[in-house]
Simulated scan of single mutants.
Amino acid sequence: MIEVKSLSKQFGTQIAVNDLTFKVDSGQFCVLVGTSGCGKSTMLRMLNRLIEPSQGQILIKGQDVTTLPPEQLRRRIGYVIQGVGLFPHRTIHQNIATVPKLLGWKKADIDARVVELLTLFKLDAATFAGKYPHQLSGGEQQRVGVARALAAKPELLLMDEPFGALDPLTRELLQDELLKIQQLLEITIIMVTHDLEEAIKMADVIAVMDKGELLQLDTPEVLLRHPKAGFVQELVGGTERPLRLLSTKQVSQIMSAQTAQPIGQLPTINANANLREAMALLIWEQVEQLQVVDAAGQIIGHVSMHELLQQGARA
């Protein structure tokens, strides 16, 4: 669990973060959103003491972070930034091995961890381990950046606009990969983004900040259904809110069980797709119903336009 108590940061006469108090449970994916300059990145960097707070307390699993030397603390916390920050003159293997090597891991254990992480991020170890960062695409570099942050099995992963510089397709693929890996490893993640759509897709809880203050911390669904008046309400949108709400649920959560043979040539959608994607496919295909398939492509149910409209109407 990450616990922040009355945390503030002042630069000269400017207050960057003002009296923040919140908790993030172990294994949760928390996303900080807000406009540029609202204090999101400052908040994130105080968690690993890249920036020291002016006042307040940060506890990780009950331990005050100020009781540890900064270097020791940072080796327990993975950190990923938008620019990746890979060492240009080190191979991919050497980049990922950086923290385990500093911690004194055995060479065999380091080698095995590098292969494990490259495989996890769908990068063939035989092909990529010996390459240098400039030989990789932007998306591949970002995968390696996250792999390096996870190399020493940290208890917390901090991410500052990790996908902001990527093209939309690569960004979506990496978002999907990160969600699968987060669920597999059950690691706590705190991520900064300015993109509300990304926050809704990725987060278990969203923290909305403005002018250095925390305005609301809730699940995506609660945030969209019950935004606080003022900035939060403006952020989540008016007419867009029902569509955004559809993004908070998967098709598997509302589908009807398959009780009969497949219905003609109806289009199919994966059970893990969100309801907004299902709505788009229904409109594109001009049908009233989709067949739902599992990861193996087996039909397990169906979802209708009527069911989707009922979900959106609850906003």
Results as ranks from 00 to 15, higher is better:
residue 219 T to V: 03
residue 272 N to R: 14
residue 101 K to Y: 01
residue 277 E to M: 10
residue 31 V to N: 08
residue 35 T to Y: 03
residue 243 L to D: 10
residue 119 T to R: 14
residue 19 D to K: 09
residue 177 E to G: 06
residue 21 T to A: 03
residue 257 A to N: 06
residue 76 R to S: 15
residue 239 T to W: 02
residue 239 T to M: 03
residue 300 I to H: 04
residue 227 P to D: 03
residue 32 L to T: 10
residue 157 L to M: 10
residue 279 M to G: 00
residue 192 V to Q: 10
residue 176 D to V: 06
residue 237 G to H: 05
residue 167 D to V: 05
residue 164 G to E: 11
residue 272 N to L: 14
residue 276 R to E: 09
residue 188 T to K: 08
residue 2 I to K: 04
residue 60 I to Y: 08
residue 248 T to M: 04
residue 21 T to E: 04
residue 15 I to S: 14
residue 102 L to Q: 13
residue 224 L to Q: 05
residue 64 D to T: 03
residue 206 I to R: 01
residue 86 L to G: 05
residue 259 T to Q: 13
residue 119 T to N: 15
residue 153 K to D: 13
residue 288 E to H: 11
residue 127 T to H: 14
residue 254 I to M: 04
residue 126 A to K: 13
residue 252 S to K: 14
residue 271 A to R: 08
residue 259 T to F: 03
residue 171 R to S: 11
residue 262 P to F: 08
residue 79 Y to P: 07
residue 98 T to Q: 10
residue 20 L to N: 09
residue 3 E to G: 02
residue 21 T to R: 02
residue 214 L to M: 13
residue 107 K to W: 05
residue 138 G to N: 10
residue 225 R to G: 12
residue 104 G to P: 13
residue 107 K to T: 14
residue 82 Q to P: 03
residue 222 V to M: 13
residue 107 K to Y: 04
residue 290 L to K: 02
residue 288 E to S: 14
residue 297 G to H: 05
residue 149 A to I: 06
residue 162 P to W: 08
residue 213 E to D: 07
